[in-house]
Simulated scan of single mutants.
Amino acid sequence: MTDMFLEKFRALVPKYLEDEWQEEDGLTPGELDEALADHSFTIPLALREFYLALGGCEDLMEAYHYFWDPEELEVDDDGFLMFLEDEEEQFTWGFRIADVSIPDPIVWRRNNARGQWKSEEGTFSEFVFDMFEWAFNDED
């Protein structure tokens, strides 16, 4: 299998943390598979490569929003695989479980107070790059 996003996700470490990417910034395939073993679902390729690249990098995994650790992933009653939450727990982001076979699926956002999901109209990789750009340039 070809890595579609791995190097682009790894490049976020030097871009935002001004440090070289190190192996400990990501999870090994074995660590990730073990963390996902109890789930009855698979995850999209883009999310898998995100964890392989950055799953051990707290500075990015918890940069303004909180990416859930692989073992914490869950599917809600509406059929969305949830992977991210904001620090105030007002919003949760996920994919439609029906779309997890798509390598880079569209991200949806749930308003937690209303329980309503709305499309972000961008793929996971687009969402991640935009979110980090926003989070790290918000200080300017």
Rank of each mutant, 00 (worst) to 15 (best):
W68C: 11
W68Q: 11
D130F: 11
A135W: 07
D138I: 00
Y16K: 01
T28P: 11
F50A: 12
E88A: 15
A46W: 07
D140Q: 05
F5A: 01
G26D: 12
L81C: 02
A46Y: 00
Q22S: 08
A46H: 09
I97P: 03
L47R: 09
A113K: 04
Y66R: 03
E89G: 13
V128M: 04
L52A: 12
P14W: 03
T2E: 01
W21H: 15
W21S: 11
D38M: 07
E72M: 15
E7Y: 05
W68N: 08
W134G: 07
L84N: 14
D59T: 06
F83S: 14
G56R: 02
E121D: 11
I43Y: 06
D76P: 10
F83A: 11
T123C: 04
Y51H: 11
E74P: 00
D25E: 13
E85L: 12
E120Y: 06
G94M: 01
S40R: 06
F129D: 03
Y16P: 09
P105K: 05
N137S: 07
T92S: 11
W108P: 01
K118E: 14
F124L: 13
L60G: 06
Y66M: 01
L52P: 08
A53W: 08
E74D: 00
D19N: 01
R96F: 01
D78E: 15
K8G: 07
E120T: 07
R96D: 11
M82V: 15
E85T: 15
E7M: 04
N137L: 07
Y16I: 00
W93Y: 15
K118Q: 13
E88R: 14
E120M: 14
K15D: 02
E34N: 05
A113G: 03
D78H: 14
F5W: 03
E18H: 10
L52Q: 13
E89A: 15
L17S: 00
R96S: 06
E88M: 13
D19A: 13
L36G: 10
R114M: 03
E23N: 11
M131Y: 15
W93E: 08
M61Y: 06
F5V: 06
Y16F: 14
A46V: 05
D130N: 14
F95V: 00
F136L: 02
E74V: 00
D86T: 04
F95Q: 00
F91A: 03
D59S: 10
M61K: 08
Q116G: 01
F9P: 09
G56W: 01
F132D: 02
V100T: 10
F9R: 09
M131E: 13
Q116P: 02
F136Q: 03
L60Q: 09
R10C: 11
I43D: 06
V128H: 04
A11R: 10
F5N: 05
L27G: 10
R96Y: 03
G115M: 02
R114L: 09
K15M: 08
E121S: 12
E62T: 02
V107C: 07
D104H: 04
L27E: 10
F5D: 04
A53Y: 12
L60E: 08
V13C: 07
S125Q: 03
E133C: 00
K8P: 08
P105F: 08
D86V: 05
D59H: 00
E58Q: 06
L27M: 15
A63C: 12
W134I: 13
M1T: 04
I97E: 10
F129M: 09
A46K: 02
R114F: 03
D86Q: 05
E72D: 15
